[in-house]
Amino acid sequence: MTKHRPGVNIVPIHGKTPQIHDSAFIAPGCTIIGDVTIGAASSVWYNCVLRADVSRIVIGERTNIQDGSIVHCDPERPGDPEGSPCLIGDDVLIGHLAMVHGCIIADRGFMGLGAIAMNKAFIASDAMLAAGAMLTEGKRMGERELWGGRPARKMRDLDDAAIAGMRMGVAHYAENAKAHAKAVAEADLS
């Protein structure tokens, strides 16, 4: 399941090794550490860090985590035996330079450029956290909602055109990942 990927740092820690589906595209410059699972046809773009040294990170299928994003989690604590794993569903879009920390993003959720989602926050299916927004600890977005601001709050419901646009974005990244995988394979990264 986890194969050699040129220019990618895959680091086992605490007896856990990242599990990456063979069809996933992991761009050079990424570092993937510990208890990370990445599903089929997902993509992690250039210079991302996924660090699961204290809990786990699970990424579903056809999800993309765009350039420069950071994904982390938090361990169990007194009164919080589950801690804050980072659980990301299928067909999720995560924009460039996002900070995804110990939260849950349901299938088809969207997190905009430079957005932050904190421990135990929840982005529902077909919901969008706007670019630059900060979803604070424990906040829960509903399905088809757009939240923005720092701290984020509901701005409006998303219409069918916005949902269709997000689905097009998922399809675009899945296809573009194939082109990048081919280009990386042909490049001399030694």
Rank of each mutant, 00 (worst) to 15 (best):
V92T: 08
S43L: 07
P85L: 13
S125K: 10
G138M: 02
L113F: 15
C48A: 04
M111E: 00
G132T: 01
A117C: 15
P12G: 04
S84H: 14
A52N: 00
A52W: 05
D53R: 09
D74R: 13
G79S: 05
R108T: 06
R108H: 14
R56C: 11
G114A: 00
R144S: 04
G68T: 04
F110W: 13
A121F: 02
H4A: 12
V8T: 11
V92N: 08
G138H: 03
E143R: 07
D107S: 11
R5H: 08
S43Y: 01
I38Y: 02
F110V: 12
G102F: 13
F110L: 14
T63H: 02
I88H: 07
T136I: 13
H21Y: 12
D74F: 15
I88S: 01
N47R: 11
D22S: 14
P78C: 14
C30F: 00
S42Q: 01
I20R: 00
N47D: 12
H21E: 13
L50Y: 03
I59G: 03
I59N: 02
D22V: 09
G89I: 03
P18Y: 05
D22C: 09
I13G: 04
G7R: 11
R56Q: 14
S43W: 01
Q19F: 15
I88R: 10
A106I: 05
M141Y: 02
I10K: 01
P18I: 00
I59F: 08
M134G: 05
R62I: 05
G60Q: 07
I105Q: 01
I38G: 07
R51H: 05
I123Q: 02
V71F: 09
S43G: 06
I94F: 10
P85W: 15
E76C: 09
V100T: 06
